[in-house]
Design a protein around this nucleic acid. Structure first.
Length: 274
DNA sequence: CCAGCAGCCTGAAAGC
DNA sequence: TGCTTTCAGGCTGCTG
């Protein structure tokens, strides 16, 4: 599932191909999740940014933004133009949006499970995108540290993992990297009390696992591919996520799996303290 | 305002 | 073999 490293990988690949290009036509799935893709037709891409797990295409020097979320199975790719007019059906059954660019290529958004979303907003107006509006600091921003994380975790009494997945303490952490960061920090996912010292450690491990994910081109468990269609390599480095029943790399205890907030969580009952 | 949870989606894998 | 059930889960929006 695309989290910060996967989205960042895609951003880096798309940016040089799209900056300066104009959307000259488009086609989109009828769902309200994808139809807004057509609102970008006529606009020129002036930058391709990322905020948490959201891709943000700046349009017309910042007047508007095309915002994309990959959901569970979303992916972007570029292909030579297919047909005289862009059409989702010219590709495969899971393509939800196609934009024809002024360089004769198509930008394609494919999303099997349709958990993704596309929309165009006035620049910076995220009133209708609550997760983006309330998003915490970027983990790679120098301003993000244990002090900031500690303060932001104080705002809620919910379990630390639940808070991380909300995107409010810090941007871009999903289920995989949350399990990894909590494991490396020695913090139980159900902990409701993360003091300053543990917050310092957690901030460090969050940055470390996300950086490793970017360096490895993302984590591919099943669906994720980058904008070139290639899988990531970070799945080989995971030490907690998806390893329930296997021995903890630190102490050898069998890792435990349980559902927290309808999501699978894997952790070590010995190394990770509540 | 906050916590908790149903619903959105579909293919792969497991179960029978 | 083939049908049915379970599972994966980010985010939205509703409810108490």
């Amino acid at each position: 599932m695309p989290e910060l490293p996967e989205v960042e990988t895609i951003r880096r690949q798309l940016a040089p191909q799209l900056i300066g290009r104009t959307f000259v036509a488009g086609d989109a799935h009828e769902s309200v999740k994808f139809a807004p893709a057509l609102d970008a037709v006529g606009a020129t891409v002036t930058d391709v940014r990322r905020r948490g797990k959201y891709l943000i295409f700046d349009l017309d020097d910042g007047a508007e933004e095309l915002i994309g979320h990959l959901g569970m199975t979303g992916s972007f790719s570029r292909t030579a133009a297919e047909g005289e007019h862009p059409a989702c059906t010219a590709h495969d059954a899971w393509v939800r949006a196609v934009w024809r660019m002024d360089d004769g290529n198509d930008l394609v958004f494919r999303d099997v499970r349709r958990f993704g979303r596309l929309r165009v907003v006035t620049a910076g107006d995220y009133a209708d995108i609550p997760t983006l509006r309330d998003m915490g600091p970027e983990p790679f921003d120098p301003a993000f540290n244990g002090k900031v994380l500690h303060e932001r975790l104080q705002g809620s009494r919910r379990a630390v993992k639940t808070q991380l997945l909300s995107q409010r303490p810090v941007a871009g952490v999903g289920n995989i990297y949350a399990d990894e960061a909590l494991f490396l920090a020695g913090i139980h996912p159900l902990s409701r009390r993360v003091g300053r010292a543990r917050a310092d450690r957690l901030a460090e491990t969050i940055v470390a696992v996300l950086r490793a994910g970017v360096d490895n081109g993302g984590t591919t468990l099943r669906d994720y591919v980058d904008a070139e269609g290639d899988a990531g390599r970070n799945q080989h480095d995971l030490v907690a996520y998806g390893r329930g029943g296997e021995p903890c790399v630190e102490c050898g205890t069998a890792l435990q799996t349980r559902t927290i907030d309808a999501r699978t969580s894997t952790f070590c009952t010995r190394c990770q303290r509540v």
